[in-house]
Design a protein around this nucleic acid. Structure first.
Lengths: 222, 222
DNA sequence: GTCGCGCCTTCTGTATACAGGAGGCGGGTT
DNA sequence: AACCCGCCTCCTGTATACAGAAGGCGCGAC
């Protein structure tokens, strides 16, 4: 037996997750080069799974591999983060537009349920619960496109942002506005107004981005 | 020296490219399992670079890794391919909409140049040249979003489709219509009509998809 | 004193070796 | 005869070993 489900999967996967967290948390600063042997020692593993983990991180954009010159943590400028947010915003807008035209009544009802459920954590300022429901809301919208590939793309892009999203909702007022914006999107969907829903979604995401932007500015600027 | 530029990069990259081609060409049929040792022997390499190549293919979706149970070529149903095309179509529409609002005069002029250049291979039914220019046209549009991240996403999605795109333009009439549709998109851009350009781009991509659809139907159906 | 060349170190990329799990096959049992 | 259990094999996942490239440093030349 292991310590409770964490020693379960592949070693390379665990290393990848650990590195993902460290990069997201800032423990591994942008730009620092990652020595394979050093990481191997640190994780008590050999270079092989470390290499695999690093390649996986590279394909999700968290690190950059320069052939024969080592791996460095991708430098995430505020501009870059904003670009990622804009792309996510546009992608989600696109999804919600399609979803509006394709959603089944059952899916719409599920979405509305999610929305109402999330009113509770909003009132209680329970960030973690809201974050989970928020995530569910957006993912339900992806699913409603009825396009598996698009769902996967959306999830992949969203995953690349998750490192930065985690702090974004901790700003009291933002969570309330987020919930209200969801309501607006839902209404547009219910009215069959795909373009309107898309517009609202774009605005919703960009609002989140600008909330994050202020946070990033506080962190990097001074 | 090597045999002429192909032995250049990393071995794992060469293997990845070779496998990509073989899967795209159908030499490696969907669903077959890929034995690491067997591939290593075939490429005259060891399992290590083969493994890396397979993991990279997994992250681009061409193969699926089932932990401790081997790697299989992803089964690409016609539905799946259509989903990928739809996603690409929507993504490109989104790009061209943004590009319309952000493009510099210089970029617009470059695009128009590309378009005019491609009139030559259209007349000559020179598929390969047109394919290259077509590619350039679309990539120039990505760039015109002035959003590096979006460009990268667009290129990544496009790369995943390239395996199927290659056959799509070989159908005589299609190449002519494709060129005409590009013209329509350019005109909408020139008029600053982002939504119109997006609509035309979506139609353009879906036309290409339906051309491919007929081809796929011929292949799989009977 | 400054610039250029070559050696040396270090790390990546590749090969090989070892260990544990997954699935198949055969024998035993009911 | 059919089903279940256990062994056995193959293959993946991980560790270790080896070779070649990239960059740094020092020495020599101008």
């Amino acid at each position: 037996m292991d310590g409770g489900g964490e020693g379960r999967g592949l070693l390379s996967d665990r290393i990848r997750n650990a590195l993902t967290d460290e990069i997201a948390a800032g423990a591994l600063a942008a730009g620092v080069s990652l020595d394979e042997q050093e990481l191997a020692d640190r994780f008590g593993a050999s270079r092989t799974p470390v290499r695999e983990a690093l390649r996986q991180l590279a394909s999700s954009g968290l690190v950059e591999v320069r052939p024969r010159r080592g791996v460095v943590v991708t430098r995430m400028t505020p501009e870059r983060i904003m670009e990622m947010f804009e792309t996510t915003a546009e992608f989600e807008a696109m999804c919600v537009r399609l979803a509006t035209y394709r959603m089944t009544p059952l899916e719409l009802s599920t979405l509305m349920n999610l929305h109402e459920q999330s009113a509770v954590p909003v009132k209680a300022s329970d960030f973690d619960t809201y974050d989970a429901l928020n995530r569910g809301f957006h993912e339900a919208l992806y699913e409603a496109t009825h396009n598996r590939f698009m769902v996967e793309q959306a999830l992949a892009i969203r995953a690349r942002l998750s490192a930065f999203r985690r702090t974004q909702l901790r700003h009291g007022e933002r969570i309330r506005r987020s919930h209200a914006e969801h309501g607006g999107i839902l209404q547009a969907i219910a009215e069959g107004d795909g373009d309107g829903a898309a517009r609202r979604m774009r605005a919703h995401m960009l609002n989140a981005a600008s909330a994050l932007g202020r946070y990033v500015a506080e962190q990097t600027g001074s």
